[in-house]
Every structure is written in C-alpha cells, then in structure tokens.
Design a protein around this nucleic acid. Sequence first.
DNA 1: CGTTGATCCTGGGCGC
DNA 2: TGCGCCCAGGATCAAC
Length: 293
Amino acid sequence: MPELPEVETIRRSLLPHLPGRCVVEVRYGDPKILKVPRHELTAAVTGSRFQDIHRRGKYLLFRLDRHHLVIHLGMSGQLTLRDPRLEDSPGFLRHPVTGLQKSRQHPPDRHTHLQLTLDDGRVLCLRDPRKFGKVLLLDPTEQAVKEFFEPRLGPEPLDADYRLEVFLQRLGQRRAPVKSVLLDQRVVAGVGNIYADEALFEAGIRPTRRAHRLRRHEKVRLFEAVRQVLERGIRFGGTTLRDYVDSDGREGGFQEELQVYGRAGEPCRRCGKEVVRIFLAQRGTHFCPTCQV
DNA sequence: CGTTGATCCTGGGCGC
DNA sequence: TGCGCCCAGGATCAAC
C-alpha cells in the first residue's frame, strides 16, 4: 500500500539512474493495469528518453520526450530497477555493499506487468500481484497534467506553499468521520490508511470524530501532524508491512516507528494502555482511546 | 449533493 | 499436511 512516503522514496531511489536513459524495449504482462492501449504505450516509450521524475500524491510521473508516463502503484505495486546481468532471487537478498541489509528484487514473474529495458541494460519493472495499479499516458503539457489531476487530487501536503487555510477549507465543513476525510485524495493528496491513523494519533484526535465538529486548534494540530508524519515516513524510507520496497529492492524502516497502525492489543507507546482497532469507512482503523479524544 | 458501499485481485494467515 | 475461507485495501462508480 504505497502512500506518499513510499512513492516519494521510490522516486528518490530512481532519480540517480533513470534520467538520461533511453527505452529500448517494452514487455507486458496482464493488460488490466494499462489504462492506455498497449500499442500506444509501446509507440510512446520506445526510443524515448527519461528526462525527470515527479510525484503528485501517490502518482509517479515520468517525463519522456513526448509524453508523461504516469504510474499508480495501487496496493501491492513494486517498481524496481534491476540489472539482469546480476543474479537475483525471489526471496531476500544481501545488500551488495553492506552484505547485511535486506532487499527484495523480484525477478520478472507472472505478476510483472510492465518491463522497460533501458539502453544501459537495466530494466524498470512494474510488479503488482493485486493489479490495483494503473499505467497511463498524458501529454507533456502543463494543461494536460492539470486536467488529469485537478478533479482527483487536492494540494501537496509537503509543498512549501501548502497553507493551513486550504486544509481548513477542504476539511472544515465535512460531516464524515475525520479519518474518512483524510483518506479523500481531494482533501489532501497522498495520505492512505497507515499515515491517516498515525497522523490522527499524533494530533490526539479520534478517527471517528466528525471533521466539521473539530475545534479549530484540533484542525491546526492535524494539519501539522499530517505533514510531520509524512515527512518522517520519507526520512525512514517508507513503511514495509508486506510488499513495499524501493526501486533498489530495499525495505522501509517506518514500520518500527508506527505508534498505532497494526498495533491493536499492544500497549500505547505514550500511555501504555491498549491500542484499539475498529472498522471505519471499510478500513481497519487503529487508535489509542486515552491519547486520542 | 454528500456520503456510503460494492467492486476489483491475489497471497497469506488461519481454522479445521 | 492440506484444503478452503476470508481478509487486506486505493480509487472509482453506483446507489441511497
């Protein structure tokens, strides 16, 4: 379940390798995740050069010569850059330098749905067992990118120009439980189930509270908590619960830092009372009944 | 109009 | 040991 910190970590791990490289060959798996006809994708990427990589919410945007290649990783998507000349195994690998760090770069298998071979021999692999991911193309114009994202995504929470007023305006009058509102990508882009629970813990707010009934100071705390939790997520290289790895196959470290997510029945790290798990908005939701009011 | 719920998909965990 | 059941969840769309 790659959320903003995981997608950003993948972006950063690709940045030293991808820009400047040319695509020499494309291979496909299940066409389900392709939101553009296969022949169009082939025509768009073959012989094209990667220029830069951007992220918008949980989407990755690869600027090619004449297109943006847009990838969403859904729940189980992995984007790895592997070198077929090096041996890799389906399980865990030792880090080539330290010999210690765990990494996982799956060789292409039946879950690998897109492979872009580059002119340096490496292969950008999109692997997505649950097939909730998406691959699409956009015209490289500002206009086309804006048209695609405007109806889907709210502001970028880590942008320097992200303002409290915008958050208050988008979250403020909604009657739904505040957690459901945080999960709405049009309110703030990039927050998913894990970081929503963590941000609400950080802000000391119960996920069931109705957004419009929060006090102003609580909304302000939540605004800060969302940014803080996402930033820490990035600093720790994302959260690996099951599938997530960066493009080098490295797992994240933020799972060790989680305060409530996945900790039902365990003691709260702040007060020692048991963390509770409920269902809210069809999602597993974790919180501390004493620290969150 | 705002919000809720069903849907897609597969691996893994669990119970029997 | 093995089988079958059910759950996890992001975005989208239908329905209330």
